[in-house]
Design a protein around this nucleic acid. Structure first.
Lengths: 345, 345
DNA sequence: TTGAAAGCGCTAACAT
DNA sequence: ATGTTAGCGCTTTCAA
């Protein structure tokens, strides 16, 4: 049987004061309104009895659970653990714990999980699995629940977001490829229902135009998911259309990994025949051959940034001053999957 | 401002019955004691009003939060995400959510986090970061809090554990090395304050003896942590002692990866000059060169198993019938980091 | 400065 | 079958 917990009432009985006095003595803010000596006596009793505040009870009363929900697509995707550590790193010192849930990129499941989190009375949600059109989280935010989206954003929504500079990333990458002599460049785009997929594709088109690189429609393949299988499928599609290319810029690392795998199966050498690039710089990438040229996004940093925004939302420090969008800088990481074109082909 | 939530009281007012009747009608178990028609009316009202149960309030009353704590060393260690999915996979269908915390292998932090979890009224804890001697969690278990340890166990403790068959794993690996002609085999052992480190070292010594392999003390290096840096350090130590070896069996994959890296720096080829083996078969291992020969443990499966034990603990189904130790089978995975010895050296 | 009392939303024992 | 009542442990207004 679970040993009975020490409550304020126990301390009150022990010290001969009223439970509300105990509550005050143990509250760092209220403590100043209590006689020094009494407060000390209460504190001492609390310590010896091994008192631990019951946050459930406090939460019921104050309507704050000091718990936040964190939604991600899938924790086994290595990009997310560092993000979670970033979140924890800022939230924990303030006494917050987080409940992490995996949506598996399933909108129905996501909606259910939002309810799960709300039922548990989370004070706010950090959402790293949001869709461009996401009525479920929009409704939650509408109801007044503090929400921050991470890595992704909801189209035309007032929900604050922390994202990476997709535009600059794609632009830097395209410039890098062109500097190696590539002019026939394909793009494996991400899912278009995600802001990342859509923004990177748009950025690709715009940057290509700026650089006078002609991008035929059949040099663009759109992945249904950000995974290796889709990367492989898209590369196959690009090859079968027949239009030649010497480089393929992928919307993220996993697509790139899948593309390279598909090339390997067809005895197409990377980077000798086709250069391939990624996006994210996920952990372990530098250990996998060929080492992928990619855009490094801030993982830990993005988690911290989102948590900081949420913190401000929670303490509603003049809402109007909270940025609705925070864009984090990215960095080009050149490795071995990109090379100079043999000829101008 | 947070929109006011619909409560039982609201539904009671709406339907003209007492709040306790509403509570019963909405409880799948109690519902049968309510007139069909009334129950339906209540259910309908709950739906239209968008009622969501307040688990905080229920938890305060029932002393069950339907929340469990999960303690791991560090979520960025790729071995843990699959374990977490395994846990989620069995707990979620029963309505449990989990709060995941990272101990960073710091005993003090671990103790604090146990308090954090208890303050939040978790119904139980799955502990994958436990030390062989771990007074903090022992005390929690003593107090009646359901606890299961995962991957690791506490020495001589009644706390149920789910672990891998370390003994068989080490034995299979040693047999594999010997079958390749290796007789001078070193061991990079894990931290001895962890059951995994200790059991694997013990297993190594015993298995070597059984196979008449002589293991001098200076062929054993003990790592302070299960990480790459320690693997590298230990390999350097082994090399400097001067006693020759043709293979090194490492207590886990990260130590092995570190050892291989240290060899690379010294231009020692793996597996041509020295074979190296790991343990765990962590994700991505098959993408890293040289592909590591290792022992595959069940990651997802271990999470599921631990969650199942916890579930039984929570429902105290004849405690005496709950296994105090569950040992999961392991599997030898032969890849490219082990090779036949050139001569009998 | 301290005590009394109410109540957060829910469940459950008891009464009808 | 339903209503009444009490109370989980805490915070917070109001009174003294």
């Amino acid at each position: 049987m679970l040993k009975k917990r020490i409550t304020l009432k126990d301390i009150a009985r022990e010290t001969g004061v009223h439970v509300s006095t105990v509550s005050r003595a143990l509250d760092p803010v209220e403590r100043k309104n209590i006689t020094e000596e009494v407060a000390n006596r209460i504190q001492a009793a609390a310590n010896t009895l091994g008192y631990r505040p019951n946050r459930i009870a406090a939460g019921l009363r104050t309507n704050r659970t000091m718990t936040v929900g964190v939604m991600i697509p899938d924790i086994t995707n290595v990009i997310f653990p560092p993000i979670l550590r970033g979140i924890e790193c800022v939230l924990e010192p303030f006494g917050y714990a987080s409940i992490i849930v995996n949506t598996d990129s399933d909108a129905e499941r996501e909606e259910r999980l939002i309810d799960v989190l709300r039922d548990r009375g989370v004070d706010g949600i950090i959402h790293a699995a949001v869709l461009r059109s996401d009525p479920a989280i929009a409704k939650a935010a509408q109801d007044g629940l503090p929400v921050v989206t991470l890595n992704r954003k909801v189209d035309g929504s007032p929900i604050p977001s922390v994202v990476n500079d997709e535009d600059s990333g794609i632009c830097q990458m395209l410039r890098h490829l062109r500097s190696l002599g590539h002019t026939r460049i394909a793009h494996i785009a991400g899912p278009q229902d995600l802001s990342t997929g859509q923004l990177r594709l748009t950025a690709f088109r715009r940057a290509a135009e700026d650089m006078n690189i002609n991008v035929a429609d059949d040099l663009i393949a759109v992945a249904a998911r950000f995974d290796e299988a889709e990367g492989a499928r898209c590369l196959a599609t690009l090859l079968t259309t027949g239009r030649p290319f010497t480089a393929v810029l992928c919307a993220n690392d996993r697509l790139a990994l899948g593309a390279i795998e598909a090339m390997r199966e067809r005895n197409i050498a990377c980077p000798e025949q086709i250069s391939v690039t990624g996006f994210n710089d996920m952990p372990f990438l530098n250990l996998i051959q060929p080492k992928l040229t990619t855009i490094r996004i801030q993982q830990f940093g993005a988690g911290k940034a989102a948590a900081n925004i949420l913190l401000r939302l929670l303490n509603s420090d003049d809402k109007a001053m909270i940025p609705v969008a925070t864009v984090l800088p990215v960095e080009l990481i050149v490795r071995d999957s990109t090379a100079r074109t043999a000829n101008g082909a």
